[in-house]
Design a protein around this nucleic acid. Structure first.
Lengths: 235, 235, 235, 235
DNA sequence: TATGAATGAGGCTTCATTCAT
DNA sequence: AATGAATGAAGCCTCATTCAT
């Protein structure tokens, strides 16, 4: 063990300034950066070094806060898949469930989320690596997705019952309300095509769809302008 | 994915006898297996050893057919993203574009594809690792997806012009026709939830939607049975 | 995952000749080398690189035969702590258990072992790192050490019963027969003092001791020459 | 020992209150704890964190008292390998060197030491990592061990000369007097078998041996009771 | 004195790739 | 065409050491 006699390391000049942050801040920093990295490259292809560097510290520094790469991944999921409030979706006074309301509460809200890069990043991460934590995904489904669908269903059924919404398959298969936004998200994901313009066109088409299905029985002859027929490539 | 968060799916034991096969067969075998592996674990986390074992030969054996891992990936994409014929979509004699026709030609066809595991695997692969080969994805978009959307648009517009379809936003944003099927695919992908039952329920809801939008102005009061409101978890 | 596109490695000129050996040979080689390394430096301070280099292959090459450093350690113990035959210790025709016999069968045999570097290396390894595999050490104790002590006890008791050995505490505490050799081994271990000369002196003193205890009741006045009083430092 | 083969012994929880202590106390605490750690895990496998935690402070706290891990090790050796007084061994008035005296002064004293865990810990440390500081071990040999052996030799020779001890090989190879105790120590070390009972049995056998060799020429037929023939496993 | 975040060298392990057989 | 031992780069993780607080 003669070889262990020599002290191990620091001989090189230290970097500029050793930034010392409170753990909470650092942890958030690391998670933010990790989300980006995992989403962009996938869990396997993301190196701790990447995360560390982008978080502004050294590899070892990351390990002061997380025991392993896996723990970072888990922490990220915990932070992201946390149940969100369904306020304003569930609470609907009688007669209040009109089409504009539905659009505002459900459709618009989704496109707002889709404008947040973090949503899309999380989605990509889930799609690429969610398989690695099936329990957590299952939990997310039960705690977030299914209650959300249920809330939409309730809302729509109430609207139909109140007579403020037309009767439609949407009230029975509420996921159909979400489908176009999911399509939009996938489009972004696959084609890296996040032009605000195209996203907005998609949103408008989506809204038109909802109106057609739930709106009053107006004579249909208006042309809807640009529904982004072929989703013309941006740029 | 040096280490898997969740244990890798159990590898099928290699077939007892390792024999020499004609190259074509071997190559197909390898690609089949590679698709499964890349889709399940992602490109980075898939080891040549995995592919070799599942294809029933050794690591070196794989290299007898492909120069590198990357080459396998590329070959896979070439095989999968190849343009498919749009026959029967484009060719529509005047007056023939009825709702049942649309359903059969577009909607049903998609769910048939979704029943094929390979479609879903390819989707997952694209989502997880498509970013690695943006040119190829772009090419696929231009050669396959956009023509497909265009064909649908043409079809629907013709139907509307012919008076066999009702005027709807669908004719202007043909992607909306696809959205529910894409949602279904994502649902499968994320929740590993490929029950034929739930998929079929989704298909029926999807069809109902299309009918509502394109179908004749029937008085709407029928209840649509089970549109799988909340997509009840299978089992 | 763009970063994964580039092939991983071999660009440097290969070493002289890539020695390819049958696994059995390699494994023995590796174990031989590992024993030396573990004994000299201890498990923790031994680097796989050390072992690999001394075995004439690369780090990765070692992993073709062992899954981990720990597995090497275990394999080493399995190879070394295997039960050895007690022939010739147990089989003793009546009247044959004389002092010279005992010396030859027990004492001399131990010093022969002590001349084998592997014995001493194994001892050191056991002392330094045996604590890490208590089950294995326990097994060794039950399978090797205790039967050995028992065999000695039986032998000595028989000699005493036959009248060929004097009655002595040795027959009841057979470990006392071994103690001087163990002392010698420790001396070697601690003081790195393996001069054949001093070891032989120790052996002779050991034999003298056994003779005094088990030998015939001769009048004691002979001087035993050099029993290596103070174990004069070698060189 | 990056990874332990066997799980590390459970660390004692640090004391609730971490307080500032006078340096001397702290240093002793640290050394006590370090001895235990080095002995149990070996130098390389012992982490400063281990020592710190067990001493009830943080890593940085240890560095307030020692410049490096190596320095702790050295300090430990200095404290432990310090020469001990040989009083009462050397000073022996003519005619006073009787067997009981020898037993009391030499044999019993060793077993008292063996009852002190620190002795055994030190032994283990020497065996495992003594090789790292050969000069210090050499110094210990010259300053402690050899004078000790010399003293024993002198004592025994005087006893023989005085006629109070029988002539025996022991007087010429005084290390033989120590051998059984060393064996006992090794037994403890290897088999982690520190039952007071077995140790006492060993002590009694040891004494019987010494009596046989140095004691008066009594007719030998008594049975010595339990000399712990096979060192029956404790429990 | 003491804490604990941060650094960075170094060790373990994996795996794409090569190549002797 | 196929095998599997061997290579070597690279990634994960540990831990002695430093230092701002």
């Amino acid at each position: 063990m003669t070889k262990q006699l020599a002290p191990r390391s620091p001989r090189c000049p230290a970097p500029a300034v050793r930034q010392r942050l409170p753990p909470d801040i650092r942890i958030q920093q690391i998670l933010d950066v990790a989300l980006e990295a995992f989403a962009r490259d996938g869990y396997a292809a993301t190196r701790i070094d990447d995360i560390a560097q982008r978080a502004g510290l050294s590899k070892g520094g990351v390990y002061a806060h997380f025991k392993s790469k896996e723990e970072i991944f888990e922490a990220l999921l915990s932070r992201t898949l946390a149940p969100k409030s369904l306020d304003g979706l569930i609470l609907a006074p009688a007669g209040s469930v009109t089409v504009p309301r539905v659009v505002e509460r459900i459709v618009d809200r989704m496109y707002v989320d889709l404008c947040d890069p973090r949503t899309v990043l999380t989605l990509r991460m889930l799609l690429a690596d969610g398989i690695r934590v099936p329990e957590r995904v299952g939990q997310w489904r039960r705690m977030v997705i299914e209650p959300y669908l249920k809330a939409i269903e309730t809302l729509l059924r109430q609207g139909v019952a109140d007579g403020t919404l037309r009767k439609s398959i949407l009230a029975e298969a509420p996921w159909l309300v979400l489908a176009p936004a999911v399509f939009a998200a996938m489009w972004q994901l696959v084609f890296e095509d996040a032009t605000p313009a195209s996203l907005d066109a998609q949103r408008r088409a989506h809204i038109a769809l909802v109106k057609e299905l739930l709106g009053p029985e107006v004579p249909r002859e208006t042309t809807h302008g640009d529904g982004t027929g072929t989703l013309a490539r941006a740029r």
